[in-house]
């Protein structure tokens, strides 16, 4: 009972964070909310994971949760990488303008 309350509070913080990201909901946000909602379900009905695990051919529910978690993390890392690239492009344009504004002609 205690762990379920702690995990639920954690998931609620996640919901708050995802909702606060933007005012209009994007596909990624809706996806994240769906993941969190299924988190609530599995926290309160852990046996459900075993049922689904045996359906898809994984031994235990806990294993299934781990596998899904790994895949989701990889997706997050990829997203983060792309975000960083976008920022790097902005930074490049900014640095280029500074460079061109301070060009030096030969003596």
């Amino acid at each position: 009972m205690i762990i379920q309350i702690i995990l639920s509070v954690g998931l609620s913080v996640c919901v708050f964070y995802v909702v606060s990201l933007r005012r209009s909901f994007s596909a990624a946000q809706i996806g994240l909310l769906a993941v969190i909602m299924s988190g609530y379900v599995f926290v309160w009905f852990p046996n459900l994971t075993n049922t689904i695990a045996s359906l898809v051919g994984v031994g235990r529910g806990a294993d299934l949760v781990t596998y899904v978690w790994i895949v989701l993390n990889l997706a997050f890392i990829l997203r983060l990488h792309l975000k960083l690239r976008e920022q790097a492009e902005t930074l490049t344009r900014l640095a280029r303008q500074i460079t061109l504004a301070h060009s030096e002609k030969p003596d």
Binding site: L91, T92, A95, R96, I98, T99, L100, H102, S103, E104, K105, P106, D107
Partner: peptide, 27 residues
């Protein structure tokens, strides 16, 4: 490079060879 007679553009931070080429193109 400047002493040798080149126009010189100084990137404030390291951006890479591709970025340097693009800066040179624009100049």
């Amino acid at each position: 490079a400047k002493r040798a007679g080149a126009h010189v553009l100084r990137h404030p931070i390291n951006l890479g060879q591709g970025a340097a080429l693009q800066t040179g193109f624009e100049y």
